[in-house]
């Protein structure tokens, strides 16, 4: 069956991919906090904040079409909330941009701000996830102090997510093949709950098999991984560059543009 291998680009190789997962994670979180803390009526400055994640995405060879498609897929909830802003704040503001100047309401300004922030932070998280293998990210998070049970559980979840989704897709396909029209809510519900229930049972059986296999191979609560985390000169360079970038935005761009 086909399904979206959403983090397939994490398995490429590039200077950004080779950076330490911990470094990337911490830098991204700090950067996102700076983006979120921008005042709610700034719009233009966010385009400067977009340069950083954009550079990471491009140097990680992530196709931009994939990035924007991903942003659009997850946007509906935030889109509704952002578009409700113009209805609640109708304070007229005159906006001037270069030689042009026109009147809009403050609500539209905030709408644009929320959407721009959304785009920038989404670029950030996509840049992080699609340049870092999930196993490495988990190991980095474990080194940063996330409980071992949680990282091991996340690792297993990630490992089996596509296996179980595959099963579900097989079931969905066979349901589609066998039902031509709407059967009424009662029957639809009966079918769906039977599907979910049997998926549940199959999942539990799979888990039993897996744990028997794990114990058969001597699993003793310790998660081992081949990758060795180390911070090299490239990581320090990345930290310094991002620090300069964030500080420059804070000190020079923010006073002028907000």
């Amino acid at each position: 069956m086909h399904h979206a291998h959403i983090d397939k680009f994490a398995y490429q190789d590039s200077p950004v991919h080779r950076l330490d997962a911990r470094v990337k994670f911490i830098v991204m979180v700090i950067f996102m906090a700076f983006v979120i803390s921008l005042p709610p009526n700034s719009v233009v400055i966010l385009s400067l904040y977009a340069i950083g994640p954009f550079a990471v995405l491009v140097s990680g060879r992530i196709p931009l079409r994939f990035v924007f498609k991903q942003i659009i897929i997850v946007s509906p909830f935030i889109l509704v909330l952002a578009l409700s802003c113009p209805f609640y704040d109708r304070t007229p503001v005159s906006v001037s941009f270069g030689p042009l100047s026109w009147q809009i309401t403050a609500g539209w300004l905030r709408c644009c701000n929320i959407l721009a922030k959304f785009t920038v932070t989404m670029m950030c998280i996509i840049a992080l996830v699609s340049t870092t293998r999930f196993t490495n990210l988990l190991e980095g998070l474990g080194k940063l102090g996330i409980p071992k049970i949680l990282t091991a559980q996340l690792g297993l979840l990630y490992r089996y997510i596509f296996v179980v989704i595959d099963k579900a897709q097989h079931m969905l396909l066979s349901r589609r093949a066998r039902s031509s029209n709407y059967l009424g809510f009662r029957n639809e519900l009966k079918t769906a709950s039977a599907m979910i229930g049997s998926l549940f049972i199959r999942s539990i059986d799979t888990a039993e098999n897996i744990s028997i296999a794990m114990q058969g191979r001597g699993f003793n609560q310790k998660w081992r991984s081949l990758s060795q985390m180390h911070t090299g000169w490239a990581d320090y360079l990345f930290i310094v560059l991002s620090a300069i970038y964030i500080l420059a935005l804070e000190l020079f761009a923010k006073p002028v543009l907000t």
Partner: peptide, 9 residues
Amino acid sequence: LALMGILGA
């Protein structure tokens, strides 16, 4: 551990 992982999936 395995059970929780699979049930998450």
